[in-house]
Design a protein around this nucleic acid. Structure first.
Length: 276
DNA sequence: AGGACGCCCTGTTCGC
DNA sequence: TGCGAACAGGGCGTCC
């Protein structure tokens, strides 16, 4: 009944690659057609927006494009406004042809004039829905750093040189760089052979060059493989995350599990060195 | 300033 | 088998 939900609904990890795929999905499925009906199922998810404003800015308007910054998806409207969506820890879009249907976990439901529907799903209700005047407004309000994929190598290197604290905390801080979350943070550090608690100030030029290379490589390939862990190289850490005990795909040693800022952190103590 | 922690919420998995 | 505890990919506020 909802074939897209199988692809997009269940197990996405709403970090940069996932949100980028949602943006592309949005642009394939939701542009141009006027919105006939707006239904806000979970008003608690509204972000700096009154329900009335959401209804007024969506109903009888249409989408003209999409943008992504970090983990935020922006849907441009024909009225100089943008619908902004954040997926929290669980969330996705689903387009289907079944007027009157409402999939499980629907938080926002749009019905188009042609009876197609677009649902924003949020299982854990940790996402955000809002209307903003521009992506830049929200980026400034939320103090988001440059997009982790769009940023140039030079800008990345400059930024991290000015950073402090532990490298994983730094990477996951959305005001430093927008888009890297827990699992892609782990993956980038694994591939760059850097210990997650390694002090940013201690990084050598070579470390930073590797980190820059890997953050682009990991994000690009993840998007290319539809962010599906099973389609990612077995030499990565990510496809093995679900296992209870993981052997390092590089050296065969035991992957260690710890917490950083309250988040599960996986790393290989043999491959990832704390000090250069 | 950086980071540890609790909290938001719900569904799944784990351990007794 | 049953049931509460722990846990899950995000982000914010508070406290040291």
């Amino acid at each position: 009944l909802f074939p897209d939900l199988i692809l997009f609904g269940a197990t996405i990890m709403p970090e940069l690659p996932d949100v980028e795929l949602e943006r592309r999905y949005f642009e394939r499925t939701a542009l141009s057609e006027p919105i006939a009906k707006t239904k806000l199922v979970e008003p608690a998810l509204l972000y700096h927006t009154a329900a009335q404003s959401l209804y007024q800015n969506l109903t009888h308007h249409h989408f003209t494009g999409g943008r992504r910054h970090g983990k935020y998806l922006f849907a441009r409207l024909d009225n100089d406004r943008w619908l902004v969506l954040h997926f929290g820890m669980t969330g996705s879009l689903a387009c289907f042809e079944c007027a009157g249907c409402q999939p499980d976990y629907t938080a926002l439901l749009l019905e188009f004039d042609n009876d197609k529907c677009l649902a924003y799903l949020s299982q854990r209700k940790l996402g955000k829905i809002g209307i903003v005047t521009s992506p830049e407004t929200l980026i400034e309000e939320r103090d988001l750093g440059p997009d982790a994929l769009a940023i140039s190598s030079d800008a990345f290197k400059t930024r991290i040189t000015q950073g402090a604290g532990g490298i994983k905390s730094w990477l996951m801080n959305q005001s430093h760089l927008a888009g890297i979350g827990n699992i892609y943070g782990d993956e980038i550090l694994f591939q760059a052979k850097l210990h997650p608690r390694c002090a940013v100030k201690q990084l050598s030029e070579a470390d930073i060059a590797r980190l820059d290379d890997k953050r682009r490589h990991v994000l690009e390939l993840a998007i290319d493989r539809t962010a599906d862990p099973q389609q990612l190289p077995r030499t990565w850490l990510l496809p093995h995350r679900e296992q209870k005990h993981i052997d390092c795909p590089r050296c065969g040693g035991a992957i260690r599990k710890t917490k950083i800022n309250g988040r599960t952190t996986l790393y290989c103590p043999a491959c990832q060195h704390e000090q250069a």
